[in-house]
């Protein structure tokens, strides 16, 4: 399957979803007015990936800011990954990054960890 690469802008993150290696990375800012429009291709890509996943799926999230409408889309992505983990066809890990002393971003990682059954590593940058 094809990879999904999206260049970041001042409102949307850089996206690198690599199917073969199972390396999924989202970095930068995510503050679009219409988050659903931005995340829809990512969610569709995930649906296809889940059908033929890599044995290991490493999800790197390195967000500086995200708005509340993005927070919903991020949860939708994590829920899809949770369903992948449940199939036992891929070992899924979420690497949630936050800048030093950014307690809000660290807490956001903990919040997601409480909402989905996936292993989270909180990593300070």
């Amino acid at each position: 399957m094809e990879n999904l690469i999206v260049e970041g802008t001042n409102k949307t993150p850089t996206v690198k979803l690599i199917a073969d290696s199972g390396l999924l990375e989202i970095s930068g800012k995510s503050i679009p007015e219409n988050s659903f429009g931005f995340y829809q291709p990512l969610l569709t890509w995930l649906d296809n990936y889940i059908a033929q996943p890599s044995p290991k799926t490493e999800v790197k999230i390195i967000l500086e800011y995200f708005n509340t409408s993005s927070s919903k889309c991020i949860l939708d992505m994590l829920r899809k990954l949770e369903s992948l983990k449940k199939t036992s066809r891929s070992e899924v890990v979420i690497l949630w990054h936050y800048e030093k002393e950014d307690e809000d971003m660290m807490e956001a990682g903990q919040d997601y960890n409480s909402l989905v059954d996936l292993p989270f590593e909180l990593i300070e940058l």
Binding site: T68, S69, K72, D76
Partner: peptide, 14 residues
């Protein structure tokens, strides 16, 4: 965050 579906507007009340 956990309960509601995302509205098309993206507002989601959050």
């Amino acid at each position: 965050l956990g309960a509601s579906e995302l509205s098309e507007k993206g507002g989601a009340g959050l």
